[in-house]
Lab assay of single mutants.
Amino acid sequence: MQNSHSGVNQLGGVFVNGRPLPDSTRQKIVELAHSGARPCDISRILQVSNGCVSKILGRYYETGSIRPRAIGGSKPRVATPEVVSKIAQYKRECPSIFAWEIRDRLLSEGVCTNDNIPSVSSINRVLRNLASEKQQMGADGMYDKLRMLNGQTGSWGTRPGWYPGTSVPGQPTQDGCQQQEGGGENTNSISSNGEDSDEAQMRLQLKRKLQRNRTSFTQEQIEALEKEFERTHYPDVFARERLAAKIDLPEARIQVWFSNRRAKWRREEKLRNQRRQASNTPSHIPISSSFSTSVYQPIPQPTTPVSSFTSGSMLGRTDTALTNTYSALPPMPSFTMANNLPMQPPVPSQTSSYSCMLPTSPSVNGRSYDTYTPPHMQTHMNSQPMGTSGTTSTGLISPGVSVPVQVPGSEPDMSQYWPRLQ
């Protein structure tokens, strides 16, 4: 039975679970980093996980050691009161100082060594604690504590007292930064006198190289990059290397530039699409467009005044059976039934097929058609009795279509119309 579990990581490298990497692998990681390889490249070359490479390099940059820390136990506290007071002093002298600059000053002034120097995250935590204590304490208590930490007896009751030896409130920041720059020169002199001055200088240079600022491109470089971006948004590694040799930039910087440029292009394309949609959409909808001609068919113009009344309900007709019959029939052209047409008796099958359309009241044959006459024609229609054979009435077949029909004066039988409509 094995005491430890061995495995293979996602890159194909072998590791022992819970145990640190061998010293030979750690040394190779540092050597590759000094030669300029990126952590992701080191991870692929040595088949070590990216997190492990970053952790080893980060500890090497901070402490200069590649040895693993002790497994188990607690780390001794490195942010001692003396170190905290120095950090507060540096922050007062130059409020814009960075944590890694404070760390360098602690090393250069001999406050800490490589073994007990606090990390950048520890210094940031100390600065946050100082800021929170400043908010919790009152103004007087804060000034007393700062005077105690600074070891001075001057008056701290006013704002300019934060910067000793100065009279203009805006000047101390520059003086403090100048003092810090002077301390940086002392850093070089002190570290050069040490035993491991060369190694420390190499480590600091490598650290500065990794902690780079934003790349500033010249106009020629920007023009070359934009020209390549117009050709393709995704250049391959050969195109990037050719462009890197042409404009004297690292291939990694060119790759990052193209990634950022593609993101910018997507944002601009989104804005262009929004403007295009806004320009195509009308600002207001016309009133006429809300009524579609496919839904509402136009009603033909009436030929006679009587045809303006298109349904039985508008003429005072309360018989719903006839109203439904007229509205359900398709529109037909106007025609006239003459008196000489043969009077065919209704076929029983045809009569039964339209039995649902006729009223059940037996008085329908005896009703006159003056009910369908509009009010303004009552006088004219009353002067001509319906009993004469020459009287013409208008029957409504569908809305908007008038059918003048000659009705025999002897017997106005409704059943004569249905064979004609089939």
Rank of each mutant, 00 (worst) to 15 (best):
142 M>H: 06
58 G>K: 00
142 M>N: 09
113 T>A: 08
138 G>F: 12
21 L>G: 00
3 N>M: 10
18 G>V: 02
89 Q>W: 14
96 S>E: 12
67 R>S: 11
80 T>P: 08
37 A>N: 07
84 V>M: 07
86 K>N: 11
79 A>W: 01
6 S>C: 08
41 D>P: 02
105 R>F: 12
132 S>L: 11
9 N>F: 02
5 H>K: 07
28 K>H: 10
35 S>G: 15
86 K>Q: 15
25 T>K: 08
116 N>G: 12
101 E>V: 13
16 V>S: 12
45 I>K: 13
23 D>E: 12
52 C>H: 05
87 I>K: 01
3 N>P: 12
80 T>N: 05
54 S>W: 02
55 K>W: 03
126 V>E: 03
143 Y>G: 14
69 R>A: 10
26 R>F: 01
93 E>H: 10
113 T>N: 10
107 L>F: 12
40 C>M: 14
138 G>T: 08
68 P>R: 00
26 R>E: 02
7 G>P: 15
132 S>Q: 09
3 N>V: 09
33 A>M: 10
17 N>F: 00
34 H>I: 07
146 L>S: 10
54 S>I: 15
105 R>E: 15
11 L>E: 04
65 S>T: 12
50 N>H: 15
130 L>Q: 10
77 R>P: 02
132 S>Y: 13
12 G>Q: 02
32 L>I: 06
57 L>P: 03
50 N>T: 15
113 T>Q: 12
10 Q>M: 11
35 S>E: 13
143 Y>K: 10
31 E>P: 03
128 R>H: 05
74 S>C: 04
3 N>W: 10
44 R>M: 06
18 G>F: 01
53 V>P: 03
96 S>D: 15
30 V>A: 15
60 Y>G: 02
144 D>T: 10
100 W>Y: 10
131 A>C: 09
113 T>V: 10
33 A>L: 06
62 E>F: 06
108 S>G: 09
25 T>H: 08
37 A>Y: 05
133 E>V: 13
54 S>E: 00
116 N>R: 04
21 L>P: 03
98 F>Y: 11
127 L>A: 15
7 G>T: 14
45 I>D: 15
66 I>N: 05
92 R>K: 09
96 S>Y: 15
37 A>Q: 10
53 V>E: 00
142 M>A: 10
126 V>I: 15
3 N>F: 09
140 D>I: 09
113 T>I: 09
59 R>C: 04
117 I>W: 06
35 S>I: 08
116 N>P: 10
111 V>T: 14
75 K>N: 05
136 Q>G: 14
88 A>K: 07
36 G>Y: 04
49 S>F: 04
15 F>R: 05
85 S>L: 14
35 S>M: 10
76 P>F: 02
103 R>P: 03
22 P>C: 07
115 D>H: 04
30 V>G: 03
38 R>I: 03
4 S>L: 11
91 K>C: 04
62 E>N: 13
71 I>N: 05
8 V>S: 04
94 C>R: 05
24 S>Q: 10
115 D>K: 05
124 N>C: 07
45 I>Y: 13
110 G>S: 14
114 N>V: 11
85 S>H: 13
33 A>W: 09
136 Q>V: 13
116 N>V: 13
53 V>R: 04
73 G>N: 00
132 S>T: 11
137 M>R: 08
21 L>M: 04
36 G>E: 05
57 L>V: 03
34 H>V: 14
53 V>S: 02
82 E>T: 07
12 G>H: 03
92 R>Q: 08
29 I>L: 06
41 D>H: 14
126 V>L: 15
117 I>H: 14
81 P>D: 07
98 F>I: 09
104 D>N: 12
125 R>L: 00
59 R>A: 04
18 G>W: 01
61 Y>D: 15
127 L>M: 06
138 G>A: 13
